[in-house]
Design a binder for these strands. Sequence first.
DNA 1: TCTTCGGGGGAGGCGCGGTTCACCCTTCGG
DNA 2: CCGAAGGGTGAACCGCGCCTCCCCCGAAGA
Lengths: 202, 202
Amino acid sequence: MDAPGPITILLSRFEDLVSAGLRSLIGADASLRIVASDVDAGRLDALIAEHAPRVTILNFGLLRAPAELRRLHAAHPATHVIVLANHPTPGECSQLLALGATACLGKDVQGRDVLNAIHLASRGLHVLPHSTPANSGVGLLPDVLTPREADVLDQLQLGRSNGEIAQALCVSVETVRTHARSVFRKLGVHNRRELSGLSRAR
Amino acid sequence: MDAPGPITILLSRFEDLVSAGLRSLIGADASLRIVASDVDAGRLDALIAEHAPRVTILNFGLLRAPAELRRLHAAHPATHVIVLANHPTPGECSQLLALGATACLGKDVQGRDVLNAIHLASRGLHVLPHSTPANSGVGLLPDVLTPREADVLDQLQLGRSNGEIAQALCVSVETVRTHARSVFRKLGVHNRRELSGLSRAR
DNA sequence: TCTTCGGGGGAGGCGCGGTTCACCCTTCGG
DNA sequence: CCGAAGGGTGAACCGCGCCTCCCCCGAAGA
């Protein structure tokens, strides 16, 4: 019908097992072709611009903040972004779609679901995980950083002290400490050192 | 690992060409099996109850009102409903999802998209058409009924008057009118008549 | 000893959405 | 004419999340 060529795919960096699984799945589908894989956050822009992939599969954990997706989508509107997150909540998914993602999947989806989602997303159709209205309100809370927490995270990743951050953001040191605590808790780290280990990939 | 049998599908009544196309497409996929087709609105309940299909593909034009979907979903929560509409707007799609649909597609989608969507929807994943860039992101999901509005909708579908609803919900008539206005606005109808020919349809 | 950092709790304010209710108006049908 | 329904506006309250700041404590280092 309308197969002007294979669907070109760019894979961001994932955990090794996830990455291997994705490459294996996609390799088995003749209509899909990977043009780049294991792409770090820092090289995303350049490689998307170079290859202009129909689909970009993005590791949610690679994003400093969800808002970064917005910049990516604005810079490369032609590529459809599928975000792979660990256990996305309905709130997160809608937020990701609002920021420009075309699809949002959990890393626990089945392989054939990924392939189906790639085909649909390549033509712009949205795919979201199932939401169970019965229990969606209970349990999982959105682990997304608030705007202010993202600001503090930026400063933390620059190696600033609490006092310096307070000056930069024009708030008290106590406020910075509050935000930093939330950032640490949400990101699952305990101090600046573990945080810099996470962002080394940039 | 998870192929306990074919995905059972119930097809509502469609235009002849659409119906033939759907049956042909689905017949070509060995993992799909049609348990009923060309089902009228009046027989939907009985046949869904009888066959308990994993997926029901519903003709949007068959619905007397979008709200009827809500009753269907409430009565048969185990079946995933894919709504096929002619040219669904993003607003309509969000309403359909709010009313219990799992996926929403236009009748102009490609055949392989339908198959992909069936597989995804059979496991509860949402599929939506591409949203126009004009209003993409914002406004995709917010038109969901609040719990109280859903209560009022239930009462409205029972043919109750504002006063009766007020008594049933233990609130003032003015409150009922406020909620009813919101329900009408969110569902795109203007009065009880458009909302409910379904109270006597079953 | 002193500061900085991490962790805990809590208070006050602000904005937003949901709920409830109130007033106004027009339209329609018995 | 009168009552019900539909449409518009707005006020009040409440809960929640976010932001800001304060207090407490203990650990680590200069």
